[in-house]
Design a binder for these strands. Structure first.
Lengths: 223, 223, 223, 223
DNA sequence: GATGAATGAGGTTTCATTCAT
DNA sequence: TATGAATGAAACCTCATTCAT
């Protein structure tokens, strides 16, 4: 993978994994036909649906199958185990959002309208995370627990916005290590998004969060 | 639950749970004697030790017992299930660190030496989280998944530093919602601490993290 | 069952089964056309190939189909189950070798050149068994386990050489029960051939085996 | 392992494995107490009993457990899988019979009374094999299929009589490779014993078998 | 107080087998 | 003729949990 960052800070950008491969093949190695792909899709949807409720460590193949209206045996035609289905979901998410997430930061007019840019990024992140909380939570947890496949996906997903932030920080001449700044900011966005519900219990609503995070972004990225 | 926060910002401070109760009773309801308490302690130590390696959803009673050099039957003399042992660990941690964590923020001379205060808090948080990553990870995960008992512990633990930050922000006249600021900052500290290893893979070392987080703290809390 | 043995030793020759029927019909009862027969043949070849590696109790229809480049459903067009395919292989082998195996013994000039005759038979048996070890192993195992269909094939196959040996023994006036002698000798040939590899691990090579077995044959069949 | 053969034919005796280890430990690593050992014993007995009927590839843990009057879960307390139980049976058999089987050959007065010695050995082998046909069949089959653990046991078991035969052949000055002779003879004894039932269907009774095999033994081992 | 032993319960997996196309 | 897809059935295996000692 080529490091496309325009800034000349060798080695300080995150290790960029390529986009994930999504393997459509059934367990016997063949590509399923239309009907099969539909079933596979139902299984993925069921997996996603259950993830909203259950931690991914507690996903049971039986439950996924039931939710999809099939039998466990059918599940095993398409995925070797429950985790693999989650991995596919994560890969699809990553694939779909990698560019968009980067754009969220990169498109901002950080010099001309830093407050707007920061708010835009902050808001976008929060929305994205809220919309895909379940899968993103898995990405986080599995990464923490050391699972390489999930960690690679997470890295690839966050690589875009992180790199963009590094560029912004470098361009604006912000103090401190740009890479560290980007890492910390992304961490903040992720965690806050993930615990949004909890914070609301403390009387902090979404708009206050967005404003606060935008402030942190702006002050950290722009000198 | 009564809000014991001394600060007069009604409704905007976190709901403060009291310190956790730690139940020492054995299954039969009686308090174990010295030998029994030692066994109980060995079981807790074994649990903590396994948590370093295994996600808490994967904790097996059998393994805890083996690690502690006892039998599963013995485990059930002291805890109704594996999760309960983890809960006790979390409660002990919470109990032990509640005050100290608050002090980390509250003791800083935010007006006279804001950089020092910020760096002190940042460093302290990172150290604390690193030292107790396993249990804190559970606190986080279980909270996210909606487990009330763990969420209450987490709330109680973070209540100290959060309140202290609210006070600092209020005192310094920093812009924005102090409660939101505190929440976001604590989230940042927690998540960065938790993903410290991952960030190091991106070439960001501990000192850069501390510096960056300190900067964010200072700029957000002090006008 | 009619004893077709030409030799007049009533009751002491093995019960001769007729040559095996090999059923070419597909499941629907009709004879497959050329294309169908080719598929059937590929399935048989795949079965034979897998038998080299796997015990026949472990043959899976799925594997046979995959090895043949077809689907399980197709397999069931030609055979009711995996065992049946093996049975066909065995029947084909039996059919093809029945006469030849008998000839191996019967053609020898046991009176004029007993050593040569014995060596010829011994060598021939070893070669035959080595070349068809997989299927012959099944014949043996299934017979031992009491499967009649396989036992009948085995009987028919060994009937030739056995009868020939009985004739030789009778003609030469060798001491003892000719039928028992033949049975024991055939058993020896079969088992040694089957365990040839194991014996080689003990430093016994093929030529020593041939020589030894030939000696036993000669001394037992020729007075 | 020391080659104890008195004969100076370096390298021509079978590779002698030591006697088998029989592991009494339960799956959790501890040694079971009296009650546990009794259960273990019942499971072994059940395994042996089922082996009389079923091929060892078809042994089901469920069946063994039922036959033993326990649950599958209990089975797994003592053996990791069905095969392991069979392995223990085989090891016990091997342990118990190694010496005795060697004696069968070694004790004979091959010089003074070769016919008697041959008949004694032949008879003993047949009896032994008949009495333990099931387990010995597994030993044979699994060895053929390349399972090292079973092959080692088989080697160890047959090592005794084989070595003894080598000694006899060497001492008597019999023609041919003594090792090959021993190997072939043991093979004969084993296979005939194993197919005794089949041979009886051909009208060959036990006494005829014994006589025939004894003849072969005598003529092959004694010049 | 401790634990050996046993097992119910439940999820995982594998396959043979079928059916509609 | 061939096969994509689905699945019932059955074994595997693991654990939490209990009970008698």
């Amino acid at each position: 993978m080529i490091d496309e960052s325009p800034v000349g800070i060798a080695g300080s950008t995150p290790p960029a994994e390529g986009p994930p491969d999504i393997d459509l093949r059934a367990v016997d190695g063949r590509l399923p036909g239309r009907r099969g792909l539909a079933t596979r899709q139902r299984l993925l949807a069921a997996t996603a649906s259950l993830l909203e409720t259950t931690g991914y460590r507690d996903l049971k193949v039986v439950e996924v199958a039931r939710e999809a209206g099939t039998s466990p045996a059918t599940f095993y035609q398409y995925f070797p185990d429950a985790e693999s289905a989650v991995l596919v979901l994560a890969a699809e998410l990553t694939e779909a959002w990698h560019d968009e997430l980067a754009t969220l930061v990169a498109d901002g007019d950080w010099m001309g309208n830093p407050d707007g840019a920061a708010r835009h990024a902050s808001e976008g992140f929060l929305d994205f995370w809220t919309a895909h909380r379940a899968v993103l939570g898995v990405l986080d947890l599995a990464s923490t627990e050391g699972d390489e496949r999930f960690r690679d996906l997470r890295t690839w997903l966050l690589n875009g916005p992180t790199t963009a932030m590094v560029d912004v920080a470098a361009a604006s001449g912000a103090a401190g290590d740009p890479m560290a700044a980007a890492g910390v900011l992304v961490a903040m966005l992720a965690h806050v998004s993930n615990h949004q519900v909890g914070l609301e219990r403390w009387g902090v609503d979404r708009s206050a969060l967005v404003a606060t995070m935008a402030g942190v972004l702006r002050r950290t990225l722009v000198a």
